[in-house]
């Protein structure tokens, strides 16, 4: 990248992009999903300390910040996706895979989706995702996409 282009981008980022890119502008305050500050995810620490995969996973808070950036840049649906993602950072890996499997067509009854939504709210504080699951359940019921019970 030429110097002029770099400057142009930096100007643009100060003008309207908030703190984007967060890596460059918020490196002091960014933390991983585990709570480890980004500045502590150094090569030295990686060589000497026990680093879990949560240490290089994104946090819910950072996803919300990225959602805000997306919304300000004119991408509201992406922002909503990142907000749901922010909620899902609380969901363990295996549970996340199970939930996706449940949402595939013909997998669950309406009641099971209601229970899933309830669990998302109670256990993971995931209100937006819960509402999304409930909406899916309603459409699945109308369109015959619920699990077909054995007669």
């Amino acid at each position: 990248m030429t110097d002029e282009r770099k400057e142009e981008r930096e100007d643009a980022s100060h003008a309207s992009n908030g703190d984007y890119p967060l890596y460059a502008n918020r490196s002091d305050t960014l933390t991983a999903a585990s709570g480890r500050p980004l500045r502590d995810l150094s090569l030295q620490k990686t060589l000497t300390e026990d680093i879990s995969s949560e240490d290089y996973s994104i946090s819910g808070e950072t996803l919300r910040a990225q959602a805000e950036i997306a919304r300000d840049a004119g991408y509201p649906q992406l922002a909503q996706n990142l907000e749901r993602a922010s909620e899902l950072t609380a969901v363990p890996n295996e549970t996340l895979l199970e939930m996706y499997e449940m949402l595939r067509p013909g997998r669950c009854s309406f009641e099971e989706y209601e229970a899933l939504a309830q669990r998302l709210r109670d256990e993971f504080n995931a209100a937006a995702t819960a509402a999304f699951v409930e909406e899916a359940a309603t459409v699945y019921r109308e369109r015959g996409l619920l699990r077909r019970e054995l007669e």
Partner: peptide, 30 residues
């Protein structure tokens, strides 16, 4: 390791994000 650190920041989740040389992120935002 830098790929892991960038994952923590999430800048490449924005529209059309890629890295140029030196992990400089560019996307529809900047």
């Amino acid at each position: 390791l830098e790929m892991g650190r960038q994952r923590v920041a999430g800048d490449y989740l924005q529209p059309s994000a890629i890295f140029e040389d030196g992990f400089s992120v560019i996307s529809a935002v900047n």
